[in-house]
Design a protein around this nucleic acid. Structure first.
Length: 310
DNA sequence: AAGACGAAAGTGGTTGA
DNA sequence: TCAACAACTTTCGTCTT
């Protein structure tokens, strides 16, 4: 949970001790766990309010010069070094001079490739920041996603795919690696690309970059769902226990982790007298009531959990 | 009236020929 | 590439609180 609270540097409060301040990621507020005081609300997304999908569009919408392009020495209007080994007067170059020209050419080509990668990255980072903020992701996750994306660009995986979908896939991979439970749907929701495309990119990234991703664990969803429903730590622990037991009995294979977590939460909430409706839980877990019910039935049956009747 | 339950039909993704 | 398949969703009727 700690990493979820690092989205922004913590503001200070005259009343609350710093260690009691937590970031409520759903509301975008800092709140004090002692007094309930809202310390800072409406955390501002500092990205541009416009979106650009192509370099041309970006050029048009941007109201200031691109900061990144300024750093490229020639600003895109570079001298082209001819391939001929002649000087301006048409004389052949002496061997020493030829080597020098050769070296220039090499650097020029490198610089060109470099700048195209940079342009791509600049745009991608824009997207990443936007989607990351919409998903309330912490800086650590966004950084991880950026790293993955950069590798993908360097491997040429973005060619022929939309930057957006590769960014989305990178974010998903980063979330999985950092154990931040986010479904593919949640991420794809904020992109023009559909879920299928993002999934394809994701698989490609995993394969090409050999990133190892731990199998997604229902327990990761427990904390998230629990927080969204405002459940106590004890309840979440109970839910985690239930999932642990279920895993040992082999009940979790092939099941949607979100659904499993939802059912575990439902049971745990009942056991700990913090009853939530199936509907509520299903909603925040991103599954249907029916799935919650099915998992619920399986779990209570197989684990022989007695639900105290009201 | 709202929530829980379950049956039946439909959907999208995976797997194996 | 196609069909079979398992998991999940949608929909809807019934029962319970």
């Amino acid at each position: 949970m700690v990493e979820e609270r690092q989205a922004n540097p913590q503001p200070s409060s005259s009343i609350c001790p710093p260690d009691k301040i937590i970031f409520d990621e759903e509301r975008g507020e800092y709140i004090c766990t002692e007094t309930g005081e809202v310390i800072e609300e409406r955390i501002i997304d500092q990205g541009p309010e416009w979106r650009a999908f192509t370099p041309e569009e970006k050029e048009k919408r941007s109201r200031v010069g691109g900061p990144l392009n300024q750093t490229i020495h020639d600003m895109g209007i570079s001298t082209v070094i001819d391939w001929k080994d002649k000087d301006a007067m048409g004389r052949s170059l002496d061997p020493k001079r030829r080597l020098e020209v050769l070296r220039w050419r090499k650097w020029q080509i490198r610089a060109r490739i470099q700048s195209s990668i940079d342009r791509n990255l600049a745009q991608a980072m824009n997207e990443l920041e936007r989607i990351g903020n919409l998903l309330n992701l912490s800086k650590a996750v966004k950084d991880e996603a950026a790293l993955i994306y950069r590798k993908a660009v360097e491997k040429g995986l973005v060619r022929g795919r939309s930057i957006e979908s590769v960014v989305a896939a990178s974010i998903y991979a980063a979330c999985r690696r950092m154990k931040m439970a986010r479904t593919l749907d949640e991420i794809a929701q904020f992109t023009k690309a559909n879920r299928k495309e993002v999934a394809r990119c994701y698989r490609l990234i995993l394969r090409e970059l050999d990133i190892d991703v731990p199998v997604s664990d229902p327990k990761d969803y427990v904390t998230r769902i629990g927080n969204l429903l405002g459940l106590s730590g004890a309840t979440m622990r109970t839910a985690a226990d239930i999932i642990e037991k279920a895993k040992n009995m082999g009940l979790t294979a092939g099941k949607d982790p979100a659904g499993l977590a939802a059912a575990a939460i439902y049971i745990a909430a009942l056991l700990n007298d913090e009853r939530r409706t199936q509907k509520e839980i299903a909603q925040v877990a991103g599954v249907t009531e029916v799935t919650v019910r099915n998992r619920y039935k399986e779990l209570t049956q197989e684990l022989k959990i007695q639900i105290p009747s009201q």
